[in-house]
Design a protein around this nucleic acid. Structure first.
Lengths: 305, 305
DNA sequence: TTATCTTACGAGAACCGTAATGATG
DNA sequence: CATCATTACGGTTCTCGTAAGATAA
């Protein structure tokens, strides 16, 4: 339990000041921030002055407007703080409002296709009245959507060591449940020299060219962490969310990719080679708020079954 | 990058209102909270009314004063939000103020004794001017101290699967570095029936009596998570921070304990039996803010070497 | 009653817009 | 000199304390 006295005086760093600061830093301009936020330039100036006065440090250089070192540290905190305040609001709405009949299911492309789509079909058969929307998005967007209550159930995925949980940012306060783990495979164009191998080790691919597709596959940085390898270079970055397009980039030899084996089964022009070491799996988890309506928990149960 | 427009109107949930709410909930009384915070009862009442009005939900039952469901959700968020606001302040101080000559090293007892104490000795020999304070505390207190800038370097430990990072709460924004991993052993009184075994498996100990010593050893909940076992019962809880006392409780047969093997070497009346499965290690990590002064980084380097 | 929360009201502070001033390229 | 940030000023709103009212034990 938190002793009530443990929280001392944090006042004067009020959220609207943080919001203004974030906006000014993002736009690099007081006047542009004022326009965007519906304030006067003067008000924005006063906001920043209030923050700087309270903290006793300059947060922004002027002309050009750029964060100082201290300002950068505040920026690192301000986003998460503001997001969490909105998450609190969303959570309260969930706890207070009656649960909606309509359920929004969000997920990363690889998490949502296949297995989950099948489970969703079953669930809808057994819950005939259930109205569902489905949307795909990148992982952070899914987690953010769940945090803000825009998504009731999120399916997120990633590549980790077996039975390791996914490491989600800003999601301490959300509940997660494992859904599936499956082997990963290296995706190669059919005519690639390695395409005939029965298995490969990631360490042997240090100087290969990787495709970076953070909207669909595990971002390279995460892959480095999971693999323990430090250098995975990427020559081409795919920023969209369509798996078929991404696979055709692989087929045309734009780079290698690590994907769940099932996503590669029967894809034209792409060869899947099992990865023997390090031992990695493609893991899918369900993420949701801690207060679930009846319809949502029924669907959650179906998806984790 | 965050689009500046992505942060909408979170106003009216101001930190001082949250602080009042947390205090009222903790004390179960408006008037007690008012006394503690230096407000009038009236002001406290108005604070709560403002929050409830803004959120459109009752947050507290009155007589007796207890959080509603919605209030409980807000409580879950309020603490982390307020702590992070203080962490932001501390971080800014660190970035702005000139680095102090004095370094505060905090750590959990098991993380700090032995290896780290030795490394600290070496570091102080090679940095003669360095003034250091050392303090031990439970893990959350160490992490919190680092977050608030009261501790420059924290050494925390825990029991996890090999090469897994420790899972620290509310510490996304702190930097961590692995320091050491060593085998864990089961601590038993000398005359315990298992004391002669050459190794044990945790699953065989499901109905043993464990000592819960969250200030020193891994809390039972964490152990359950790491071991995958669901039921580890505890009959006695040690709430202090003195390792010798804890070990004497083990020697007197008050319960079993999982500790790093080195902590058990040569302890009177305590037998250490290696744990064969699941594969677990005692891991030590260094945790610190992202802006380090020269003295602090020198010490950090010595401790992670 | 008595302890406790709520409401009414008013003085002072805070906030933000208008407008004038200052700085920079 | 044009653009942009800061400062001065004042009306409006907000905040919190005093004090009176309401309510449950």
């Amino acid at each position: 339990m938190i002793h009530a006295g443990s929280i001392s005086n944090t006042d004067r760093v009020e959220p609207h000041l943080l919001r203004t600061f974030v906006t000014v830093a993002a736009l690099g301009s007081f006047s542009a921030a004022a326009r965007q936020l519906g304030y006067t330039q003067s008000a924005v100036s006063q906001h920043i002055a209030a923050l700087e006065g309270d903290l006793g440090v300059a947060l922004l250089h002027r002309r050009p407007v750029e964060p100082t070192a201290a300002g950068q540290r505040l920026l690192d905190h301000a986003g998460p703080i503001l997001r969490r305040m909105e998450a609190a609001r969303a959570d309260i709405r969930r706890a207070a409002g009656e649960p909606p009949g309509k359920v929004v299911l969000g997920g990363c492309p690889l998490a949502l296709a296949g297995r989950a789509a099948r489970a969703l079909a079953e669930a809808r058969r057994s819950l005939p009245g259930l109205e569902v929307s489905v949307r795909t998005a990148a992982r952070d967007a899914v987690v953010g959507g769940v945090a803000l209550g825009e998504i009731d159930l999120g399916l997120v995925d990633g590549i980790v060591a077996p039975s390791d949980p996914l490491r989600l940012h800003d999601a301490d306060f959300l509940a997660t449940a494992p859904v599936a783990e499956e082997p990963v495979a290296l995706a190669l164009p059919g005519e690639h020299p390695l395409a005939t191998r029965s298995s490969v080790r990631l360490r042997d691919l240090a100087d290969a060219n990787w495709l970076d597709a953070p909207g669909i596959a595990a971002p390279l940085g995460e892959l480095r962490a999971a693999a323990g390898t430090d250098d995975l270079r990427s020559a081409l970055r795919y920023e969209g969310g369509d798996t078929r397009t991404l696979l055709s980039l692989v087929a045309e030899g734009h780079g290698l990719l690590l994907l769940p084996a099932s996503a590669l089964a029967g894809v034209q022009g792409v060869r899947a080679v099992p990865v023997s070491a390090p031992r990695l799996v493609h893991r899918t988890e369900l993420v949701h708020g801690r207060t679930l309506g009846a319809a949502v928990s029924a669907l959650a149960a179906a998806l984790t079954r």
